[in-house]
């Protein structure tokens, strides 16, 4: 398959081109909040280097979060519009599963993917291993790092924490036995996402416009409103 993968869920964004299971190129930048400027030019350059057109792609792969909201919308609007305008397939993955499936982690241990959600919170999800494959446990969540660690006290197993959220709050994990921190990756990689599609098991999205970001939080105004005037919100 010819797959163009787009990544904008975190401060590190970029694109990757994977053809028949070979990573032809991956272009990443950590210029925060510049995804809208760099994403499409990166993709165009990768396609040009490989000498293929967007119409020749079998699929566009997109990380739908959880992550930074504005970045997610840039990536998803780009991916959906590319797919719909070119007729390519569209495949979506979550940021936390892309992190957990990074080949640099190996497949021997349970992984806890943790991304910095800003405002003192993290996005987190566990992934176990069976027959060399990773399986998500539960849904992606947003929570305080302290709450995540509190519930880990009752998980007597060795695991690897991966992602910039784990690194940021590493000292909070210090008292836990059997917890390792993966030095890389800090962020989900678009090449990994494309390889996951290549290996199968990621469903093609038949209706591209149904692919939307995973936010996990209400907009602030709605959250404040629910606290201040729950009845008015229910009426509206």
């Amino acid at each position: 398959m010819k797959l163009l993968s787009l990544e904008t869920a975190t401060a590190a964004g970029g694109a990757a081109l994977v053809i028949d299971g070979v990573v032809i190129g991956e272009s990443m930048t950590t210029k925060d909040r510049r995804h809208a400027e760099t994403l499409l030019p990166s993709a165009i350059e990768l396609l040009a280097q490989a000498g293929i057109t967007v119409q020749e792609l079998d699929g566009i792969v997109i990380d739908v979060g959880p992550g930074l909201y504005t970045g997610l919308r840039v990536g998803i609007a780009t991916a959906r519009s590319l797919a719909m305008a070119s007729g390519s397939g569209l495949y979506s993955l979550t940021s936390l599963e892309v992190l957990a499936n990074d080949e640099r982690l190996g497949t021997s241990q349970t992984v806890l993917s943790v991304l910095d959600a800003r405002r003192g919170e993290v996005f987190a999800q566990y992934f176990t291993v069976e027959n060399g494959q990773r399986f998500p446990q539960g849904e992606p969540r947003v929570l305080l790092p302290g709450d995540l660690i509190e519930e880990m006290d009752t998980r007597p197993q060795s695991l690897v924490v991966v992602g910039d959220g784990g690194v940021r709050y590493q000292e909070l994990f210090a008292h836990l036995q059997g917890v390792e921190f993966a030095p890389v990756p800090l962020f989900p990689s678009p090449a990994t996402a494309a390889m996951m599609v290549e290996r199968g098991g990621v469903t093609k999205q038949d209706i591209p416009s149904d692919v939307t970001p995973i936010y996990l939080r209400d907009p602030d105004a709605v959250a404040n409103f629910k606290v201040a005037a729950p009845s008015r919100l229910a009426d509206s």
Partner: peptide, 19 residues
């Protein structure tokens, strides 16, 4: 609003490129 502008901009660029 930057968050609003970016949605239309991202979609427009992608469509123009694909077409």
């Amino acid at each position: 609003l930057v968050g609003s502008l970016l949605v239309g901009l991202s979609g427009a660029k992608a469509m123009a490129y694909a077409w």
